[in-house]
């Protein structure tokens, strides 16, 4: 096992290359997922607000999405 991590004494170079590849590729996927989720949440909230604006003049329904809004 330690021989695997040592890579014949070149472990630093091998794992620096593979480590950065893993970090960058995983970060890209996580960023894409977060962006899609945030967008869907924003669009759903906009639609709720648009829907309640006409029927809910008291603003009782509109308050809930506002409180749930992230950020």
């Amino acid at each position: 096992m330690s021989a695997f991590f040592a890579q014949g004494g070149y472990g630093f170079f091998v794992w620096s290359a593979y480590g950065m590849a893993a970090i960058v590729l995983i970060a890209e996927v996580m960023q894409l997922r977060a962006r899609q989720r945030a967008l869907l949440a924003r669009l759903a909230r906009l639609q709720r607000l648009a829907g309640t604006a006409s029927t809910d003049t008291q603003g009782t329904l509109g308050a809930a999405p506002g409180q749930r809004q992230a950020k």
Binding site: Y10, F13, V14, A17
Partner: peptide
């Protein structure tokens, strides 16, 4: 062994 960097 550093030749394995070729795979990425």
């Amino acid at each position: 062994e550093y030749y394995r960097i070729i795979f990425v």
